[in-house]
Design a protein around this nucleic acid. Structure first.
Length: 561
RNA sequence: GCUCUUGUAGUUCAAUGGAUAGAACAGCUCCGUCCUAAGGAGUAGAUGCAGGUUCGAUUCCUGCCAAGGGCACCA
């Protein structure tokens, strides 16, 4: 990437000025007049050297210019090997910024080769194996909106990491034992004709009145007692199959599944062998005193001797470790589990078997999805499940498309619904609550998944028409703002990968889509059956970049809409 | 009470210690025979409060205020 080359050159120039280890950034300036890249290196160095920033900037510029070849032969440079010779202009500006403007030929070259080149340096995570655990729904319960959020974030992080060269293992951890299972089974026993969802709802509602009976079932499930096993297997299978359909719609394919029915024994064993060392007994339970790490105390094994979720999570760490060498393990959950997981990981770091994997674990959280008031129709009463949300949005999308002749309007509506939800979830930095407005998420006016999808569809339509037109050579003009924006895509994804924040990609492709739409509205591409090769190349680059951007976000790209 | 997270236009979100805080929606003005107008152009509008560090703070530190999460056998 050009950016990397500039960064390396600046490092070299700084070193020759005697300023080592200066923290600086090379970024896209807010203003196009400031060039294609800008750095605060001189400002940062001036601080360390205790000199005037402008003077340092001038010196730095001199060094950089002296590194430029005297002949401006940038035409023979390929997109991957753009060197400093690709730079047309280096300027000192403002309080001491150094701005770089790329040679027009180089911008065009990068842009026009983009559709062929394997983009991205693929260096950041090259050779690294990263496990991403996300979605985590519980069999016997509904797939709710939180799972949708976890899925959207996890899938995009997985893809962004893959873009950066990582080998990603997608993992899903599901609670197939526990009280919720017992409630569902009890409900089904009482009402054999009810659906599993209704059975669970009934069991939940009746739990207090039938506590003993349901608790007994819970124990039987753990023990795989023959009296419940048939019903258990049926319900579990039904849930998992339902989930699998949703994953398919959402575009996720998991590599591995973990279940609580596999983690609890391992976790329990880990806790038991460390009582007196890591854990202590208190009031009949086994606890970890998180206060030693500035956290709080949590119960790992309850009075009855059963493992809590904490112990099960230790068992999960064991299972993850058994998969093989993992360089980074990412877990995505709702933010309400943030403090909880800190305690579990703190305890795990004291246990030899799982200390290493605990050390490598990063927790990414998402807030709750709240709904803009009064704008959500729900067919299932008060509860909006992930499924019903998808279905409602799909129906709404289909309605919006009425009058259009599409090959597969059902599929297109699905793509729009999924894109609308995912975009809404991914457009902001993770951790905060999301206010979801269904109408806005499907609207083509303004920031939305469909808006970006639509820009892509338009670009594709132009390319189709252009392929029927006569391609003519055009005078090579200076690159347009749109083309200059296209150059930055790889570094945006790389930043998303290094910070595990997909929203950078969302912001970027939205800007790109808007710029393209603006261009589209102001320009006629095909005139009298003729189209400039130049235009075709630029549109192709837009199409390619939008498609890739959506792809790393896990947002489907419809062919038409 | 302790602790974590978050406070940016009317609303929903951006901003890597830097250049004039950037978008979208809603508002107000405009653009319809043409490659998908499900679009586009323009306009107005914001950093919770008070200190501190810095050449420079939405960003870092301290205090306050406000919202949300967590704090013993649920997940």
């Amino acid at each position: 990437m050009v950016r990397d080359n500039i960064e390396a050159a600046i490092k070299e120039a700084l070193a020759s000025l005697g300023a080592l280890h200066v923290p600086f950034v090379v970024e896209r300036p807010a203003e196009m007049e400031h060039g294609d890249y800008a750095t605060n290196a001189a400002l940062a160095a001036a601080k360390i050297l205790k000199k005037n920033p402008r003077d340092v900037a001038e010196q730095l510029k001199e060094k950089l210019v002296s590194q430029l070849p005297s002949t401006e032969d940038s035409v023979g440079v390929s997109a991957q090997q753009v060197s400093l010779s690709a730079i047309k202009k280096i300027e000192v500006a403002g309080v001491g910024f150094i701005n770089f403007t790329l040679a027009g030929t180089v911008v065009k070259k990068i842009v026009h080769e983009a559709h062929e080149a394997e983009w991205g340096s693929n260096i950041l995570y090259k050779g690294k194996t990263v496990m991403v655990e996300y979605t985590d729904p519980n069999p016997f319960k509904e797939f709710h909106i939180g799972h949708l959020m976890s899925n959207a974030i996890g899938e995009s992080i997985a893809r962004v990491l893959e873009f950066s060269g990582a080998n990603v293992i997608r993992a899903n951890y599901q609670g197939d034992v526990g009280l919720h299972v017992a409630k569902a089974i009890w409900g089904k026993q009482q009402k054999p004709d009810a659906s599993w969802g209704e059975a669970y709802a009934y069991g939940s509602a009746e739990y207090e009145a039938n506590k003993e009976e349901i608790d007994a079932i819970n124990k039987k499930v753990y023990e795989k007692d023959p009296s419940v096993i048939a019903l258990y297997d049926e319900g579990r299978k039904h849930s998992l199959e339902t989930f699998e359909k949703i994953y398919k719609t959402l575009g996720t394919k998991f590599d591995t599944y973990f279940f609580e029915s596999e983690t609890w024994q391992k976790g329990l064993a880990l806790v038991q062998t460390n009582v007196g060392k890591v854990f202590e007994e208190s009031d009949g339970a086994v606890i970890y005193r998180g206060e030693q790490d500035g956290l709080h105390t949590r119960v790992f094994v309850n009075k009855a001797g059963l493992p809590t979720y904490e112990a099960k999570d230790l068992g999960l760490l064991m299972l993850k470790k058994e998969i093989g060498t993992i360089d980074l393990s990412i877990t995505i959950t709702a933010s309400e589990q943030q403090e909880y997981l800190k305690v579990v990981l703190a305890a795990a770091k004291h246990i030899a078997e799982v200390a290493d994997i605990a050390q490598k674990t990063k927790h990414i959280t998402h807030g709750m999805m709240r709904f803009a008031e009064g704008k959500m129709s729900s067919r299932t009463g008060n509860v909006i499940t992930g499924e019903s949300l998808l279905n409602d949005l799909q129906a709404e999308a289909k309605e919006k498309m009425q009058g259009r002749e599409l090959e597969d309007s059902e599929k297109t509506a699905e793509h729009i619904a999924v894109g609308g939800i995912k975009y809404s979830v991914l457009k902001q930095a993770s951790g905060k609550d999301i206010v979801f407005d269904p109408a806005k998420s499907l609207s083509l006016e303004g920031d939305s998944g469909p808006y970006v999808q639509y820009a892509l569809v338009r670009a594709r339509a132009v390319l189709r028409k252009a392929s029927e037109a006569e391609a003519v050579d055009a005078e090579s003009a200076e690159p347009s703002p749109l083309e200059r924006l296209l150059v930055h895509f790889p570094e945006v994804v790389e930043r998303a990968a290094s910070e595990l924040e997909p929203h950078y990609v969302v912001t970027y492709i939205t800007e790109l889509a808007a710029d393209f739409n603006s261009w589209y509205a102001s320009e006629r591409f095909i005139i009298d059956g003729k189209v400039s090769k130049h235009t075709v190349a630029a549109v192709k680059a837009v199409e390619n970049t939008l498609a890739r951007g959506l792809q790393v976000l896990g947002i489907p790209a419809p062919e038409e809409m």
